[in-house]
Design a binder for these strands. Structure first.
Lengths: 358, 358
DNA sequence: ACAGGTTGATAAAACGTTATATCAACAATA
DNA sequence: TATTGTTGATATAACGTTTTATCAACCTGT
């Protein structure tokens, strides 16, 4: 068989270590420097020699040793993404956008999760920087920034924050939460005269606070005689279970019909479950608007009106910004904070719709 | 203020580059070799000197340069996880187990997704290996193995496969899909005499094929006169939408009541949605058993009977196996294939239950 | 006092790559 | 023929770490 030589070398399992510049040099009969220059299309070499070198490099299945390059001060062409939880529903589309831009630039990325623990965030950002990444993307970071400043300075790498701008010290990409809050509230206001409440999740994270602010502003504009602050109920964590609890608290004090703007979709799901369990119908008894338009709504056919945030676009923009800051260190002095537009998606939790049968 | 000195050095933003062994050596007035030996607790040094060196190292915020260590042939203490999709529901708990074991061992991990594309799988596994990881974990890999063999050999690193064993060439960790299929089917058989069908997703992936095999075996044992093979319906992809379609196809040919063992939970969710849309009630009209017991079932209060697989445990075992193969290269010659037990979780999609009101 | 042994430290080499400096050969100019 | 310039290649140093070999100094026992 023609392929038997290759088969043998595969079978014996003792394939020798990776080819290096020196190996190629020896085969071609030339200096390692020449090989380096040839492969990087630098220096002055005969076209003929360049060709021969590239040929043997390919034949030996050569790929440069990243450790050696990094040691020489080269870029690693790798960035790291640090997120609070991998199962953050936001994350999926975000990563899609990120991936596309990074792939195109030939930059690889790795990811890790902090479990929303500051200690882990400190540890991971530092570890990744030590490993030599060219930049960091931090999603839903804590509200601290000292460790980020330290890492960014010590290792001279840029950091881009997502969905949580931090004092203009870092580049950031976020959704227009304020406008989202207004959109949601104005939509509820447009339904009828029912009272409105907000289930808020604002403990320091600027994004969530802005959602509440949007609610308060819209209420003040439309119903100046109603104290919007008193219409806000806190939730104990951003989970469906917590939403269930919060809804129970509201239902205890107030009788339907009323409208609800909920800080995010997971919490809103808990609200819907409460309604199902207690015979409350939407939109007639309770009209609900969530935030984020997470994709399981569609998958599971849950008709929750929500504010859509351009997750994939945010990923693209974040990656683009990071790559720019890596390539142009001077831009790090005034890091951009980008706010992307959101939109309202109306579903049956606020407006009754005719369903077309399949 | 006492802290002003530190504040200044933070403010000027020009923090000098990372401290190296040489820097420490210069400060202590000793050779770099001594510093290396001291920090690694090797060689013969005065306790006094060792102490002083460690002290200054800490003071200079020293951490060894991984690139340099790797170049010297050291382990990188990093592994890479390659998965088909980040939003694979299996992934969340798996990663929890993985993380715990790796953390304890001081090993960091990075992750990337292949979108179920072989080309991407090839590219990513190679890229990660080139970057110098000590080992690879591949979840839901393709059915090819040449590229894995090549990467494993060229870079002399072990690979552990998850949920899809591949010809005993690699270490693998998988759920007992065969037994899961039997459990699910036997549960349905125990309900009553209704006919049973299986929505199968077996195009080559050994795990899914074994689920079907479990169904066929259980059927053959309990109802030898029924052709179990003909009770199997294929699904076009492992999504809820595809499940909806498959259920439509079955409903066209067969009238309720019947029982369904579905290849996985996502597909089963599509089946449940179909039932809701077409006025079919469970468990009376259609009894459904899924596979995997993904966590949104609980979150969204969807009462789907399912086969629970020990996701977190699989993560722990996979990480443990990989660490072992990294530390003991001789074990790579006969890589272990571990099969973990599964269990049945009964919910309302097969057995009517009394719900306790909150 | 001298071979042999231990202790505590260092010098030098190596990992693979790339940037800088050097160098030979040859062409063009004076 | 000597001077300068260009072209095509190489030698060397450097990145930060660890390993190996070396070395001085100090003991031990004859």
């Amino acid at each position: 068989m023609v392929a038997s030589g290759r088969m043998d070398s595969e079978k014996n399992g003792q394939s020798r270590p990776r080819a290096t510049l020196k190996d190629i040099a020896k085969v071609v009969g030339v200096s390692p420097t020449a090989v380096s220059l040839a492969l990087n299309d630098k220096g002055a070499l005969t076209d003929e020699l360049r060709r021969r070198i590239k040929e043997t490099a390919a034949a030996l299945d050569y790929s440069p040793n990243p450790a050696a390059r990094i040691l020489r001060g080269a870029r690693s062409n790798a960035v790291s993404v640090v997120i609070n939880y991998f199962n953050n529903p936001f994350f999926r589309h975000f990563v899609l956008g990120l991936e596309e831009v990074l792939d195109r630039a030939g930059v690889s990325y790795s990811m890790s999760q902090t479990h929303d623990r500051l200690e882990k965030e400190r540890e991971l950002t530092r570890k990744m920087a030590e490993q030599g990444v060219d930049g960091l993307i931090v999603l839903n970071c804590s509200s601290e920034h000292e460790h980020l400043t330290a890492v960014s300075q010590t290792f001279s790498i840029p950091i881009v924050l997502i969905s949580h701008a931090l004092e203009d010290r870092f580049a950031a990409v976020q959704a227009d939460n304020l406008r989202g809050g207004r959109l949601a509230t104005e939509h509820l206001l447009s339904l009828d005269e029912r009272p409105l409440f907000h289930i808020e999740g604002g403990w320091g994270k600027s994004g969530l606070i802005n959602r509440k602010l949007g609610f308060v502003q819209a209420m003040r504009d439309a119903r100046p005689d109603c104290n919007a602050e008193e219409a806000c109920f806190p939730v104990e964590g951003l989970t469906a279970a917590a939403g269930y609890q919060a809804m129970a608290a509201i239902h205890e004090k107030h009788n339907p019909p009323f409208g609800l703007f909920v800080v995010n979709d997971e919490v809103a799901l808990g609200v819907l479950t409460y309604c199902r369990h207690h015979g409350l119908h939407w939109p007639d008894d309770v009209a609900v608007v969530g935030f984020s338009d997470i994709d399981i709504l569609e998958t599971l056919d849950i008709p929750l009106t929500s504010i859509r945030i351009p997750q994939q676009r945010m990923g693209e923009v974040a990656a683009g910004t990071l790559l720019d800051l890596i390539a142009h260190p001077e831009n790090r002095l005034c890091p951009p904070v980008l706010t992307l537009p959101v939109s309202l998606v109306v579903r049956e939790s606020t407006v009754k719709q005719r369903r077309g049968l399949p």
